[in-house]
Computed example of a mutant assay.
Amino acid sequence: MDRNLIQRTISGIVYVGIIILCTTSMGAQLINGIYPGIIQQQYLYFGLITFFLIVGAWECIKMMKFGNGYEKWVVYPLVIFIFYIFSKRYFHHDFFYDFRLSEILALSLIGIAIFTLFKYPNELYYNSGKLIFVVIYVALPFCFALGLPKFSNFNDSFSLEVLFLFVLIWSSDTFAYLTGKFFGKHKMAPKISPKKTWEGYIGGVTLTLVLSYFIEYYQQELRGNWMVVGFLVAAFAPLGDLVESQLKRTFGVKDSGNIIPGHGGVLDRLDSFIICAPVVYLYFILEKFI
Score class of each variant (00 low, 15 high):
140 L>V: 13
69 G>W: 11
192 I>F: 12
169 I>D: 00
97 Y>K: 15
26 M>T: 15
226 W>M: 04
89 R>G: 01
123 E>A: 10
67 G>I: 09
89 R>A: 03
178 L>M: 06
80 I>H: 06
135 V>I: 14
260 I>K: 15
34 I>G: 05
165 L>R: 13
184 G>A: 04
122 N>G: 10
39 I>P: 12
170 W>L: 06
76 Y>R: 09
123 E>V: 04
64 M>R: 12
47 G>S: 09
60 C>M: 13
151 F>N: 10
177 Y>K: 02
181 K>W: 01
149 P>A: 09
209 L>V: 07
148 L>G: 12
211 L>R: 00
197 T>E: 01
219 Q>P: 04
29 Q>A: 10
10 I>W: 14
22 C>D: 14
40 Q>V: 08
101 L>M: 13
196 K>S: 02
268 D>H: 08
171 S>G: 07
260 I>S: 14
276 C>F: 09
171 S>K: 00
188 M>W: 07
145 A>C: 09
110 I>A: 06
181 K>D: 02
173 D>K: 01
162 V>E: 12
209 L>T: 03
169 I>R: 15
273 F>H: 08
264 G>Y: 01
157 S>V: 13
179 T>N: 03
40 Q>G: 07
171 S>W: 09
18 I>V: 15
276 C>W: 11
259 I>W: 01
215 I>T: 05
66 F>G: 05
196 K>F: 02
134 V>P: 08
229 V>N: 14
79 V>W: 02
275 I>E: 09
211 L>N: 00
143 C>M: 06
85 I>E: 14
198 W>K: 05
188 M>Y: 08
142 F>L: 09
